[in-house]
Design a protein around this nucleic acid. Sequence first.
DNA 1: TAAAATGTTCTCTT
DNA 2: AAAGAGAACATTTT
Length: 271
Amino acid sequence: MPELPEVETLRRYLEQTSLHQKINGFTTEDPKRQLALPPEELHEEIMGRQMVSTTRIGKHLLVALDNGKVISLHFGMTGDLHYYRIPEDAPRFERATFYFDSGFKLAFVDSRKFGRIGLWDSEEAYIKAKALGPDALEISADVLQKGLQKRKSPIKPVLLDQKLLAGIGNWLVDEILYQAGIHPETIAGELTSSQLQNLVNAMQEVLKTAIDKEAVYRELPATFLIHAREWDTSPHPEENTHKHCYRCQTEILKTTVGGRATYFCPSCQVK
DNA sequence: TAAAATGTTCTCTT
DNA sequence: AAAGAGAACATTTT
């Protein structure tokens, strides 16, 4: 699930379900692993408090409490949220739960258990601790260009570096490079100014489109590369057209760049 | 059944 | 100091 558009969708979900209710309980399956602080401490700080507002930076969701503290939610590879009341609606893989006095619960769902929950004195403290760069929707072309300039790695792993800019994950980076017509192994510092411009435009376009569709992949435009990924659950898997570039019909290739699975069009994205 | 999976972080090396 | 490579983390799904 959780790259920038997914986390933005979760932020809105939390905002529409869970604000302004008294928290009267919190449980975790595996506090040592899932919490960035001792469970007693978290419990003490949030009991009786209310969530009052949310912020997102990159893939991180921050929830402000009415005592000024900030809960951090990071969703790892498979994190999700589910708000419910009756036990029949409990999701699979519920790893942590916030209980409200309304009787509703906010579940932190996470099959692979890479997600983390923390408590901080301020948003700034969290951003500093994680050394997060500017959010991918906010970063200016100028700052991005300066960040890329000195890097000698392929552009793909550089864009995945959350210290440079926050929010881009493995499917997004492939999508953005595809839309920008840039080969994922192009050395970051060697991008031309027109490539850089294409990159900035594609990043905005892809992020906004994905947020607009609430990160539901099958609703993304047919022009999106994401439909070529194996885990795309197309309603018509027998139609293999999504394995080809919508622009030139060339077969989409799968390789490894920076240790991650990488999809690209060998014809539209040349080094 | 072995392999791959939307992410981060740590260690080691350069 | 900073950048890059690679492994580790835990579990599910195909």
